[in-house]
């Protein structure tokens, strides 16, 4: 298992490099190389998830180790689907989506790295986790988190682009050669699409979690730190969704609006990650039932 995990990590690291090369080089063949490397990492990751599933006799998402591996898997999955969609359905070939790929691979590699540090022994599930809601709830959350991580990467890229081209923007508009440039700018649109995929799953995850808590503990909402922080993540994305309706009625400059939205995404995803794995740092976490046992 350890060996497989390390191998997966190396393949994902190779995928980071491949995506960066693809960005710089921009050859069509390179795009498939990068896609291939990431796919093979994904296949290894799938094997990891499946072997764990059969060894542990429960869905492999109950402790830290399992969640890290599963999260890596779902991030890779969502990104690969996304890339296939852009190639075959939207038919965008020459966009700079590869840079998002590189960022997603970094996140995936980080997750596998964390899994390597975590306690990988198989643990029996405590009674409360022996529920079918666990699977629904956790899968919703991880799919959502994966999509939201893409919105985070897109927001980063968008802001960097804006920063690089901040002086040249006018020139580009004047010259009308801005088709490529415009595509690159539309990373904020991409971020929005990612959120619009992730947000419903986030909502459903919150609801299924609540129903599950009712079944197991008798309260659908108990103001537990984990519950509160998932609510916070949800509220931040809710703000992101409603803000475009409000901004035209304020005197914020039109060109600044997407920047503001991207900044919100930049804040939002770390909150999500904190909800996922940082809660034991809170002073109130001592009384919580939800936090993964160390």
């Amino acid at each position: 298992m350890d060996f497989m995990l390390k191998l997966t990590l190396y393949v994902y690291c190779a995928a980071i490099v491949a995506y960066i090369v693809r960005e710089v080089w921009r050859a069509k063949s390179m795009r498939w190389v990068a896609f291939g490397v990431l796919s093979s990492g994904f296949i290894l990751n799938t094997i990891l998830v499946l072997t764990r599933w059969s060894e542990a006799h429960h869905a492999p998402m109950s402790d830290k180790f399992e969640s890290f591996v599963f999260f890596a898997w779902s991030i890779a999955l969502v990104y690969l689907i996304f890339e296939l969609v852009t190639i075959f359905i939207v038919k965008v070939h020459e966009s700079r989506i590869g840079i998002i790929g590189a960022l997603q691979c970094v996140l995936v590699a980080w997750m596998i790295c964390s899994a390597l540090q975590a306690d990988s022994t198989i643990k029996e599930l405590p009674p409360a986790l022996q529920s079918n809601w666990l699977v629904t709830h956790v899968i919703c959350y991880f799919l959502s988190y994966s999509a939201l991580s893409m919105s985070f990467s897109a927001a980063i890229v968008y802001l960097i682009h804006r920063w690089i081209f901040s002086g040249k923007q006018k020139v580009a508009e004047v010259v009308e050669s801005g088709i490529q440039l415009k595509k690159d700018y539309s990373f904020d649109k991409l971020a929005y699409i990612a959120v619009s995929i992730g947000f419903p799953f986030l909502t459903i995850g919150l609801i299924t979690g609540s129903i599950w808590a009712k079944g197991a503990w008798g309260t659908y909402w108990g103001w537990d730190p984990k519950e509160i922080w998932s609510l916070i993540s949800w509220l931040v994305y809710l703000t992101y969704m409603h803000l475009p309706l409000m901004l035209p009625k304020t005197n914020i400059k039109k060109s600044f609006r997407p920047i503001l939205l991207s900044i919100i995404l930049l804040i939002a995803f770390p909150i999500v990650l904190f909800t996922f794995m940082g809660l034991h740092k809170l002073p109130t976490s001592a009384d919580s039932d939800h936090i993964y046992a160390e």
């Binding site: 103001w223 730190p225 509160i228 922080w229 609510l231 916070i232 509220l235 931040v236 809710l238 703000t239 409603h242 803000l243 309706l245 409000m246 009625k249 304020t250 809170l282 002073p283 109130t284 976490s285």
Partner: peptide, 25 residues
């Protein structure tokens, strides 16, 4: 009716939630 109020409420709620986990309750 305004979204502005909505956004303000949502943000205040989010901040209070953060406080509610940082300050012992």
């Amino acid at each position: 009716c305004s979204v502005r109020l909505a956004v303000i409420i949502i943000v205040i709620m989010a901040v209070s939630c953060v406080l509610g986990t940082v300050i012992l309750q």
